[in-house]
């Protein structure tokens, strides 16, 4: 009788532990702001972009958020039949999710774009490319900003 109740309490304790672990594991590493996801899906027309095939190059540690160099390069042959139609960059925590949207075609030769952007705070950036076959590819990068844009003007 006593051994039965002991084993039962042990099982309950284990179940509780497993439950807690499941809660910890199920929680995403970082909650994505709805604006970023909506902006990405607005660009893709509801399609979920596939990770990979895009290189998003930005310094991981930024001293001055007022001007941050960023380069997006997409793997593509850039021929009439297979090229990149559009490239867009989105951010997570600036006042607006959009950064830049480029339209290009086979005459661009290379699917590569560089600019300089503002970062209001440490955040995640997502680059999405629309390919000529209608598929979408993406890449993301985490950036830590020590001096934010929009603070000192």
């Amino acid at each position: 009788m006593s051994s039965l109740s002991l084993s039962r309490s042990r099982i309950e304790r284990r179940a509780l532990g497993a439950g807690l672990l499941a809660v910890v594991l199920a929680r995403p590493a970082r909650a994505e702001r709805p604006g970023l996801r909506e902006a990405v899906l607005g660009f893709t027309g509801g399609a979920e972009p596939v990770e990979g095939g895009v290189a998003l190059d930005i310094p991981p540690l930024v001293e001055n958020g007022n001007t941050v160099p960023v380069t997006i390069a997409v793997e593509s042959a850039m021929t009439e039949t297979e090229h990149v139609r559009r490239i867009a960059l989105f951010n997570e925590r600036n006042p607006q999710p959009h950064v830049i949207t480029a339209r290009l075609g086979p005459r661009a030769g290379r699917a590569r774009l560089s600019t300089r952007m503002r970062l209001a705070t440490s955040q995640r950036l997502v680059a999405v490319a629309e390919m000529s076959d209608g598929s979408f590819r993406s890449a993301s990068a985490e950036v830590i900003v020590t001096l934010a844009a929009c603070v000192e003007g």
């Binding site: 959009h98 950064v99 480029a102 774009l113 952007m117």
Partner: peptide, 10 residues
């Protein structure tokens, strides 16, 4: 080539 820019551009 053409781009649309947002206020997030420096």
């Amino acid at each position: 080539f053409s781009v649309e820019l947002a206020p997030a551009i420096a």
